[in-house]
């Protein structure tokens, strides 16, 4: 892939995502400009923080429409953490908020009696064949920091699952759309491998 745009909409520090992708690709751009999103060959949507705030910011920058149109037209997309949640129709986080709606399903508080947020290294078990997991052994550990999890309506959209008091979807993939709950940019060499797989 030639040009990868990392969308900067004020939701967290993106430097580590940028550094990690720079290891895998020649051209990485961090931008909040919808023109850049349209011009890029692939889109990465990272972010940490509240779902509602994130949608407000995306809309204010006109990025919601740009992302939806480009992804619907087939442009490769990788969501990370909040970027996974935003793909879905709506979230329960502090009121009900509408998401991008690129995949059917909801975002709900983790249904567990364990400590929330779920922070640390946890196992990811792959549910279907995917290029993203090339060279990544099934059951590998990745780094998580989150309180909410996605509940996809369509089972075949689920790429991987993780156990934390309950089993939740820790990644999804459909055609050109992929997203993960964990942070590959903070998951050492296997995380970097996953980002390389996305880029190549």
């Amino acid at each position: 892939m030639d040009l990868i745009v990392i969308i900067d909409y004020g939701m967290g520090n993106l430097r580590s995502v940028e550094k990690a992708l720079e290891k895998a690709s020649r051209q990485v751009m961090v931008s909040h400009n919808q023109g850049d999103v349209r011009a890029a060959d692939a889109i990465v949507l990272p972010g940490v923080g509240a779902f509602g705030d994130a949608m407000v910011r995306l809309k204010r920058l006109g990025l919601d429409a740009a992302i939806k149109e480009e992804v619907t037209a087939g442009k490769p997309f990788l969501g990370i953490c909040l970027g996974l949640a935003l793909l879905f129709e709506e979230s329960d986080e502090h009121g009900v908020h509408e998401g991008l709606g690129l995949l059917p399903g909801r975002v709900e508080l983790l249904p567990t009696n364990l400590k929330i947020p779920h922070i640390g290294w946890n196992r990811v078990s792959v549910q279907k064949e995917s290029r993203l997991f090339d060279g990544v052994p099934n059951g590998s550990f990745f780094y998580f920091v989150h309180s909410y999890a996605v509940v996809p309506k369509i089972d075949s959209d689920v790429l991987c699952r993780t156990e934390y008091g309950c089993e939740f979807a820790s990644g999804v993939e459909r055609d050109n759309i992929a997203a993960v709950q964990f942070h590959p940019e903070k998951s050492s060499s296997l995380g970097l491998r996953m980002l390389e797989n996305f880029v190549s």
Binding site: N13, Y143, K186, S187, S188, G191, L192
Partner: peptide, 8 residues
């Protein structure tokens, strides 16, 4: 550190 590290 942020420039070089890929763990928290």
């Amino acid at each position: 550190c942020a420039e070089e590290l890929f763990i928290p």
